[in-house]
């Protein structure tokens, strides 16, 4: 019983300077805005071939051209360079040194925004609405994981799509059919305004706040990766087919490519509940990560 905590058995924590995190955030923020992931670009190219609406095909082709141009010229693909969402997974054997972690993350956002010619899209107070002038602060989610490394993920979330996201506290009786209805209805209501073709992130289970966070994590999962659980994977595929029957199409001007992917994450929940959150992502699904 006593063996676990003996002084001789302690491993020394690995020291990670918060400057390394600041620098990583700045670089990832620029990179994410300039270089859309291959998963999205490949999906857009494929959608441009499969779309049946001629106008939809034309739109998808132009979106591909826009991403190629942004990569080549190293400019933001979209002017909404987003609210910066940072996920830090910190190994429990890491000792962070050199200053305040949260301040380091926000300093990284400021630096990346300035050096990368990104837009100042943040107001300092949701009601007073004065632009902070430096695109900070971002939103920081921290998790403790096993090991001695730090995983930094930066996502740039545009609000045309974020605004269309929804959460429902369904009941156990609503079941999977209730979840499907809510997801399809949310995409239908998002319609043309969220910049389709969309990436639909769904979080099922947990609590009120965890469902929303799962949905965000689902949105930034590569869209060419299906869920490892066969039943969830089947649900992802079924929902993608359903939302693509809504007719919304690229930019909401009609077609069969309303979404490029539906990504789902699940977590255990209470016997009385079935939380479901839908985080709508636009096609400009920008995120980058690095292990320190």
């Amino acid at each position: 019983m006593a063996e676990a905590a003996g002084p001789g058995r302690e491993t020394l924590p690995r020291r990670v300077h918060v400057d390394a995190i600041r620098q990583a955030v700045a670089e990832l923020l620029m990179e994410a805005n300039y270089c859309i992931g291959d998963d999205v670009l490949d999906a857009l190219r494929q959608a441009a071939e499969e779309e049946q609406s001629p106008l939809g095909r034309d739109i998808l082709t132009q979106l591909v051209a826009n991403y190629e141009l942004a990569r080549q010229e190293r400019v933001p693909a979209c002017q909404d360079t987003g609210l910066t969402i940072v996920f830090l997974e910190i190994g429990q054997d890491v000792h962070l040194v050199g200053g305040d972690l949260r301040e380091a993350v926000n300093a990284g956002i400021r630096e990346g925004t300035k050096a990368g010619f990104l837009r100042n899209s943040v107001v300092g107070d949701p009601l007073l609405r004065r632009n902070t002038g430096d695109n900070a602060p971002g939103v920081l989610h921290v998790d403790i994981i096993p090991g001695d490394r730090v995983h930094v993920t930066v996502a740039c979330k545009g609000f045309g799509s974020e605004n269309k996201s929804r959460l429902a506290m369904l009941t156990p009786a609503d079941g999977v059919e209730g979840v499907k209805r809510f997801v399809v209805e949310t995409v239908d209501r998002a319609g043309a305004q969220a910049c389709p073709p969309l990436i639909v992130g769904v979080g099922i289970g947990g609590s009120f706040e965890l469902a929303a966070r799962l949905a965000k994590q689902a949105v930034i999962r590569p869209i060419n990766q299906r869920h490892p659980r066969p039943d969830i994977r089947a649900l992802e595929e079924e929902l993608l087919e359903e939302v693509n029957r809504l007719g919304i199409g690229p930019q909401g001007l009609g077609g069969i490519k309303t979404a490029l992917a539906v990504n789902i994450e699940v977590y255990p929940t209470h016997i009385a509940g079935l939380p479901v959150a839908v985080n709508i992502g636009c096609h400009s699904n920008r995120h980058r990560d690095v292990w320190l």
Partner: peptide, 23 residues
């Protein structure tokens, strides 16, 4: 938007389930 959506909802709804691997 309204015209295109109505037209394409009718057409897309009439399609067989659309799978990229079947295209």
């Amino acid at each position: 938007h309204r015209q295109a959506r109505e037209e394409w909802r009718r057409r897309a709804g009439g399609l067989a389930p659309h799978r990229s691997d079947m295209a």
